[in-house]
Amino acid sequence: MSEAELVRETEVTQGRYVYCIASCQDELSLGNIGIGHAEVYMVSHKDIAAVVHACQAQPYASMNENEVKEWILSHNTVIDEVSERFGTVLPFSFDAVVKGDDDVVKDWLSKGYEKLKQELERLRDKAEYTMQIFCDQNKLMDKIIGENQGLRELKEKIEKMPKRAAYLFQRKFELQVKDAYNVMRGRLTEEFVSKIKEHVEEVKVEKKVSQLPKNYKDKKLIAAFSCLVHKEKVKGLGDALGKINSQEGYAVRFTGPWAPFSFVKLEGV
């Protein structure tokens, strides 16, 4: 009996932590690459398999941020490993624990088979890429003021004013610049989408972006996207982004491939 089998037998381990669903018919062990070095293995039904490890039937929880981060990185490593071996997977969010043993997982796979299979087919040979487009703050400001006659005139007026009077108008000017910036951002986002559209299957405009790497801190983020891209179109997308990147003042951050976290869906499939 292998160690994993032993763990699976134990009374307390009646949960299965799910990493992803992959196209694979064999019940392989992937070794101790899971969260907390757990042995990751595949539970299959026909030609699809859930990638899991045996755990207690309760979610992972910790007050230690670093520990949680480590778990999350491990989860991602497993997804990367499986994607490399079996192609596109249906990735699960962190901390998805099935209550029950391998049979419950199997049962679940068999009941959801049609939908899971269809989703795997839809995403086959595609991966998620993310891009963030930045612009130099000063360049952006020049562009905004340059294009807006009202702002230009207000700025000239302020420059001729005595200091005290200028202060109030300066505030007004700043507010108007802010509005103009939002308008321009919307316009630029559309512009970027039109430039990359032909290279992607799907595009999602990200409203929120978590912390950005330090080397982009002095720049203004104008737009962020997640895209589902066919593997044969990645180069074309890269070229299109390269063009944006080479424009003066612009910088593009392009990451991937990721498992299709933003595009996997199971409802109504």
Partner: peptide, 20 residues
Amino acid sequence: PTRLEFDINDVLEKLLNKGL
């Protein structure tokens, strides 16, 4: 495209906010 192993924020974004 790049994938820096230790760009933890990107990983967190995906695994906590997205996926099934």
